[in-house]
């Protein structure tokens, strides 16, 4: 097991390195160096840039030096100081913008996964153990409905419901009065009361698919002899089902942990924009539109690293859950 984890850690490190190269290439892709455009931008706005400041930045990013040196300086700054460079659009360090949004992105992502699991697993199990029953058909119908309705539409509907039925301020993750407030219990509760909308919306599109996956997996497993052994042992029926086939059928769920975050950031940008969520998705879109390459590169980098970490976590979880995987 330890050997398995070490091997996975090494591959993860190599992958992250490769990703950093790709992200750097993205930053370098636009013609000219970004300092030229930064200077031009500022001049256009009638501001004068002191020559010393430009010189310092040139030194900081290694501009004019070989591209390998530039890459080295970029990586070193990230590793040692968490410095991703400056956003050209706003002039604020990228890391400040990132740290502002990353935790909330992860929070929305994780809560959506949680929502999906809590809903999809029991329904999938029920649908499989009651195959072709009335409720199985009802769940299938609702699932496909959830799959077919565009997320942003659902977002608009739920926002309206939250506003008209519960009198909530909609959009964003906080009520206006808490937006700038320091963390407190009240702010946390306020966050929770706003979190359910993105959680449900991001969740529904996935839930349908995962219900189907769970149902199909369970149908495969339910007829396995080991389930019959459990039944013959005199266990209660729910105990037989939840201890044996569910445990085996869960594997595909664990493997989704890895790509859940990037999918949530990339896949629901429109929803995030509609809901005005302070997550990375809208930030990435804006960075790309404004050709804010340090920003975009950093987000791509962070998302990829999160994917790698997610995959690592799901690999380790799978190995814990399924002893056959440890063999290899």
């Amino acid at each position: 097991m330890v050997k398995f984890i070490i091997r996975r850690l090494v591959t993860a490190a190599v992958t992250i390195w490769a990703i950093s190269v790709v992200s750097f290439v993205i930053i370098q892709l636009p013609p000219g160096d970004f300092l030229t455009s930064y200077e031009a931008n500022l001049r256009q706005m009638g501001e004068n840039v002191p020559e010393e400041q430009l010189e310092a930045m040139r030194e900081r990013y290694g501009l004019g030096e070989p591209i390998v040196t530039q890459y080295y300086k970029w990586v070193k700054a990230i590793l040692l100081h968490g410095d991703f460079g400056r956003s050209m659009e706003s002039g604020v360090p990228v890391s400040v913008l990132l740290w502002d949004r990353l935790p909330l992105t992860v929070l929305v992502g994780l809560s959506s996964i949680l929502f999906v699991w809590v809903v999809a697993i029991p329904i999938g199990v029920y649908s499989a153990t009651h195959q072709y029953s009335l409720m199985d058909h009802v769940f299938t119908f609702l699932g496909f409905l959830g799959l077919a309705i565009p997320n942003f539409l659902l977002a608009l509907v739920l926002m309206w419901v939250a506003w008209s039925e519960f009198g909530q301020s909609v959009g964003g993750l906080y009520s206006p009065e808490y937006k700038a407030a320091p963390w407190s219990m009240a702010k946390f509760l306020d966050l929770l009361s706003h979190l359910w909308i993105p959680m449900v919306i991001v969740g529904t599109s996935w839930t349908a698919g995962l219900i189907r996956t769970m149902r199909a997996n369970m149908l495969d497993e339910l007829n396995q002899p080991y389930v019959e052994t459990g039944r013959a042992k005199g266990l209660r029926e729910w105990r037989v089902v939840w201890k044996y086939p569910v445990r085996v059928a869960l594997n595909p769920f664990i493997s989704t942990v890895g790509y859940a975050l990037p999918q949530i950031v990339g896949g629901v940008v429109i929803t995030a924009v509609v809901l005005n969520l302070p997550t990375l998705g809208p930030l990435l879109v804006r960075a790309l539109l404004a050709q804010d390459m340090f920003m975009a590169g950093a987000i791509v980098m962070i998302l990829s690293v999160l994917t790698v970490i997610g995959t690592l976590i799901s690999d380790i979880l799978l190995a814990i859950l399924d002893p056959r995987i440890r063999l290899e």
């Binding site: 052994t229 044996y244 445990r247 085996v248 056959r324």
Partner: peptide, 23 residues
């Protein structure tokens, strides 16, 4: 359920799959 295994136990044809793969 008391009779199952306590009074009448059963073994199956497939020794491969009549044991759980993950326990």
């Amino acid at each position: 359920r008391r009779i199952r295994w306590g009074e009448i136990a059963m073994i199956f044809q497939e020794p491969m799959t009549s044991l759980s793969p993950v326990h």
